[in-house]
């Protein structure tokens, strides 16, 4: 499959995989920056494609490392912390909506957040309904 040499890295497999993972994360950001600063449409498209492809690799490597117990996932956020942010940003949302309505008389009800479980029911909904009521 690949050269079976008696080579031993002074870095562990985990170190090496970790180095690749952080490089992939960095390269995703660099492609995003490059795309936003490109003026040629074909170059912008190239950087966008490379960004998406690299993002996919990063996700695959992360999952493989997690399965090999090489990655300690961050601890879950506490319920009270979620409640606090929820409360605060619902208030902010009201103010922002007021701001938009006062200035444009318009309502915006789109969300980019559509978890898999919700998607099916949402597909039946039409128009500008929020996906989270």
């Amino acid at each position: 499959m690949y050269q079976q040499q008696q080579k031993q890295s002074i870095l562990t497999e985990e170190d090496l995989a970790g180095a690749i993972l952080s490089d992939l994360k960095r390269v995703v950001r660099e492609y995003a920056t490059a795309a936003t600063e490109s003026t040629c449409p074909d170059i912008r498209q190239l950087f966008t494609k490379l960004m998406n492809s690299t993002l996919t690799l990063q996700g695959q490597l992360f999952q493989a490392m997690q399965q090999a117990n090489m990655y300690n996932a961050a601890s879950p956020a506490l319920r009270q912390e979620l409640d606090k942010q929820m409360k605060q940003y619902q208030q902010t949302k009201q103010k922002t909506t007021q701001f938009v309505q006062q200035n444009l008389g318009q309502q915006q009800n789109q969300t980019f957040y559509t978890p898999a479980m919700q998607q099916q029911t949402n597909q039946q909904q039409q128009g500008n309904q929020p996906y989270y009521m």
């Binding site: 690949y2 050269q3 040499q5 080579k7 031993q8 890295s9 497999e13 090496l16 995989a17 180095a19 690749i20 490089d23 493989a64 490392m65 399965q67 090999a68």
Partner: peptide
Amino acid sequence: QCTALAVTGTTPALQ
């Protein structure tokens, strides 16, 4: 780096 991991790695999935 990927070449190094393929050559020196020990976890088949990662290789």
